[in-house]
């Protein structure tokens, strides 16, 4: 599903504008440990994390992150948003915590797949 549509479906706010919004998101990985995030990254994976610090800039710059979803209405660091825009990644902020957000993401992505397979 396209990143901007996905953000709309889960009620998240889009923070970065640019090519990243058009990225096709196929899977989601949620975690708060940098090594796990690095290990799971690819260009179709949305990372969901409580880490809202600027250290997230590095994964965006170094490995091709498709997108990052921050939680609990966190404020996205302007530099993080700028780095994402430069590297074609999307940054979105969900108003909810990890559990609710992942539930909505699952419903949006898997529900749609199930709908497709029924057709």
């Amino acid at each position: 599903m396209r990143a901007d549509n996905l953000a709309r479906e889960i009620g998240a706010e889009l923070c970065s504008a640019g090519a990243g919004e058009m990225a096709e998101i196929e899977r989601v990985y949620a975690g708060d440990r940098m090594s796990d995030l690095l290990h799971e990254v690819d260009d179709h994976t949305l990372l969901v994390t409580n880490l809202a610090h600027r250290v997230l800039i590095r994964p965006i710059e170094l490995v091709d992150v498709a997108g990052i979803c921050l939680l609990n209405g966190a404020t996205a660091d302007p530099e993080l948003v700028a780095a994402a825009a430069e590297h074609g990644a999307v940054v979105m902020v969900s108003p909810d915590g990890m559990y609710e957000t992942c539930g909505r993401l699952y419903a949006a992505l898997e529900g749609r797949k199930a709908g497709e397979s029924r057709r």
């Binding site: 440990r33 090594s35 796990d36």
Partner: peptide
């Protein structure tokens, strides 16, 4: 606090 120190660094280097 910043998400490091999960004890996965060296295994991650090896894996990649």
């Amino acid at each position: 606090e910043l998400g490091f120190g999960a004890g996965m660094g060296l295994p991650n280097i090896q894996r990649n």
